[in-house]
Simulated scan of single mutants.
Amino acid sequence: MVRADWEDQFVEYFRVRAQPLRRLAYSLCGDWHTAEDLVQLTFVRLYRRWPGIREESVDAYARQIVVNAFLTHRRARRRESLMADPPERATGGADPTARLAVHRALAGLGPRQRAAVVLRYLEDLPVAEVATLLGISEGTVKSQTARAIQSMRGALDGAALTKE
Rank of each mutant, 00 (worst) to 15 (best):
A101F: 06
G139D: 04
E164M: 06
L46Q: 13
R3Y: 11
L122M: 05
L41H: 11
Y61G: 01
E80D: 07
R114C: 05
A84C: 07
P86D: 14
G139M: 07
T145A: 14
E88G: 15
A35R: 01
G30Q: 06
F43W: 05
R112P: 02
Q64R: 14
Q19W: 13
A25N: 12
F14L: 15
D95I: 00
P126Y: 01
D5W: 12
D31L: 07
L134V: 05
D157S: 14
A18I: 09
R15W: 15
V44S: 13
T145Q: 08
A131M: 00
L71R: 08
A98K: 07
V66Y: 04
T72P: 00
L156W: 14
Y26L: 08
L109S: 14
D59I: 15
A98H: 03
R112N: 12
D5H: 14
L122E: 03
R99Y: 09
Q144P: 08
P87T: 05
E36R: 09
F70P: 00
F14I: 14
R15A: 15
Q40D: 13
A90K: 06
E55A: 09
A4H: 07
V2Q: 15
L100Q: 02
G108A: 09
D31C: 10
L109K: 06
K163L: 13
H73T: 01
C29N: 00
V102F: 03
W50N: 11
A107Y: 12
R49K: 13
W32V: 13
R104S: 09
R48T: 08
A90R: 10
R104A: 08
A69N: 01
G110Y: 01
D157K: 05
I65R: 11
P20F: 08
R48H: 03
A69M: 00
R78F: 10
L106R: 02
H103L: 15
H33T: 15
S143F: 13
I65P: 02
R78N: 06
A98I: 12
R78S: 04
R79V: 10
T72H: 01
P86Y: 10
R48M: 04
L21V: 10
L133K: 02
D85R: 15
G93C: 09
L156P: 04
V2A: 15
A148I: 00
I136K: 05
Y26S: 05
A90S: 05
R104F: 07
A25L: 05
V2M: 15
V58C: 08
R23V: 06
A69F: 06
S27W: 11
P20D: 09
R22V: 10
P51D: 03
L134N: 00
Q9F: 01
R147D: 11
E164W: 07
E7P: 02
T132W: 09
V67A: 09
A128F: 06
V130S: 00
A35M: 04
G92R: 02
